[in-house]
């Protein structure tokens, strides 16, 4: 962990070498979720509600996903761009160092410029949570934190899984974006607006629902078992998703074939 922060410091130093580009990027990144969020706002102004979900409720859902995703992206960017490490053969370098490959890939890249996005999402979360008509008990607040953490873990797990694919082929990686960008857009809204099979896939195959929709039912005390405190613990199930992803990664590392040189 200590090493991880050392890596972070190092990359911070490198990125600060190009200050103007850094600031512009941070500003630009800030604007992206802001525009989508504005879209959400205007949609609600027009239609009032979404399948019985009020604006602030959807905003909370939206903010949890955005915050989890931007956190995952700031810290897990190394996996997101991992295929370039494989193509250039620079992964060799990580393998001759006495540390776990996962930690090193994490440490290979940080997108500090995306911190802007992260801050904006966090502000949105606080704003939505304080405007919503919910009695914030301690357990509910813990659930909300757990939701965000679980979301980060799930997105990171998907990044790792997608990165593992590049051990076999460095082509067609765009398909992974269905799950990262697609998953983010999808879970920005309450899952019950979608078809049943969509809900099932995103609960049991990729547990997006575990960090977002299901525990949200508990927080908002909605129907469908929403009142049951077990729902507060569902985000923990999201952590399980990391296990198979790390296993695939390990198999992939053994399959790595480097480049000629």
């Amino acid at each position: 962990m200590r090493l991880y922060f050392k890596y972070m410091k190092m990359i911070m130093k490198s990125q600060m070498q190009y200050r103007a580009s850094f600031l512009l990027l941070a500003l630009g990144q800030c604007l992206t979720p802001f525009t989508t969020f504005a879209g959400l706002y205007f949609m609600f102004e027009r239609f009032g509600q979404l399948r019985g979900w009020s604006f602030y409720e959807v905003a909370l859902c939206f903010a949890v996903t955005q915050l989890a995703f931007s956190c995952a992206e700031v810290f897990g960017r190394g996996f997101d761009v991992f295929s370039s490490l494989v193509i250039s053969g620079d992964f060799d370098r990580l393998l001759v160092r006495p540390r776990s490959t996962v930690v090193q890939v994490f440490g290979s890249r940080f997108e500090f410029a995306r911190l802007g996005r992260l801050l904006l999402s966090a502000a949105m979360l606080v704003w939505a949570a304080s405007n919503i008509e919910v009695d914030w008990t301690l357990l509910k607040m813990m659930t909300l934190v757990l939701m965000v953490v679980s979301g980060i873990v799930i997105f990171l797990a998907i990044f790792i899984l997608a990165a593992s694919v590049s051990f076999w082929t460095v082509q067609g990686l765009e398909i992974a974006n269905i799950f990262t960008d697609g998953g983010r857009e999808m879970t920005s809204y309450p899952l019950n607006i979608y078809q049943k099979w969509v809900k099932r896939v995103f609960t049991f195959v990729i547990p997006f629902a575990c960090f977002n929709y299901l525990p949200l039912l508990y927080i908002l005390e909605r129907d469908g078992g929403g009142g049951h405190p077990m729902y507060a613990l569902i985000p923990l199930a999201g952590f399980l998703f990391l296990v198979p992803c790390l296993l695939v990664w390990r198999v992939g590392v053994r399959h790595y074939r480097s480049t000629g040189s």
Binding site: M10, K13, D92, S261
Partner: peptide
């Protein structure tokens, strides 16, 4: 690897060395 660097491109050499010391 003669054709591949293990140093961090944008920072002073000493910083790379210190990170390697920690690794």
């Amino acid at each position: 690897f003669g054709q591949r660097s293990q140093l961090w491109w944008d920072v002073p050499v000493a910083d790379s060395f210190e990170l390697l010391r920690d690794i």
